[in-house]
Computed example of a mutant assay.
Amino acid sequence: MPIAFETKGLQQFDHSRWGNPVTGDVVTLTYIDQAPDLPASLDDPETLRRQLTELQAEFGCLIEAHAITVDGQPALLRLEKFPLEGRQSGLGFTAGLVLPKATCSAILKIMCMETGRSGVREAAIVPRVGFQNMFPPHPYAPEIKGKLPYNAADDARWDPQFPDHPLTRARGWITYISRTARVDPRFAVLPPFTGPAVPAAPEVPAAAAQTVAIPTGAARAETTAIPTSPVHAETVRIRRG
């Protein structure tokens, strides 16, 4: 695998998954042998953050995203939340590193889930900031309203007061790993990712036309051009997580 990281305290399930037997957190390391689907270059953080916010809004909420370096390699650090399927309440939090290259990428992430009573962190923050300030506009895309709202309680400044919260665990683990992980030299020297590929505009051949006689009366005829090979232009949607 392209990334080596500290696994102390984790139980290895297979070659790419580990679990924390105490918290239930799950770590995965994935190598993807195709061009990254990031919507923008790491050199354009404003566009990247905005488009990631739009994409994640369909499933939950992007909490934060940062272009950083891991062992000298460009990387994206992202933190997200989403509702847990099959449960009436409770959230899951993922924190991950994406190391993109021109034709492949490596992704290391942790998933931490709420257990027991949910919403404890949020309820404790309300008296401190006021309910009217609990759901500010998203800093990366203020007009976006996603499946989950951007929440003042998700701010990192509250983490020390909630050391066992899944968001605190996810943020703390990925922050530590981003500083200590090592990248395989063979992966490090691969051509860099410079942004999503822009497809060339398709060539649309001119429609062939032929002239046919359309009688309009007994003594006269008019001609009309009728295309014999119509061409229908289509647009292809290019896709982020």
Rank of each mutant, 00 (worst) to 15 (best):
E203K: 14
A218R: 11
A124F: 02
V27M: 07
P205A: 06
M134A: 05
T94C: 12
A213F: 09
G19T: 10
D159R: 05
Y31H: 15
G119T: 04
C61Q: 05
P230C: 04
F13D: 15
P45S: 02
A188W: 04
D14P: 04
Y150E: 01
A156G: 12
G172E: 04
P230I: 01
I238C: 04
A156T: 08
P227I: 07
A188M: 08
R157P: 00
T235Q: 08
R186M: 15
I226R: 09
L79M: 14
G24V: 04
S105M: 11
A102G: 04
D43Y: 02
I144N: 00
A65D: 02
T28A: 11
D33W: 03
E58H: 08
R117Y: 07
A188K: 13
H66L: 07
I144K: 01
V236A: 14
Y31F: 12
Q210L: 06
Q132H: 03
A152C: 00
A152S: 14
Q210Y: 04
P149Y: 00
E64A: 07
D14F: 10
N20L: 03
T53P: 00
G116M: 08
R169T: 11
V212F: 14
T115A: 14
D184L: 07
A123K: 12
F162A: 12
R169G: 13
Q12Y: 02
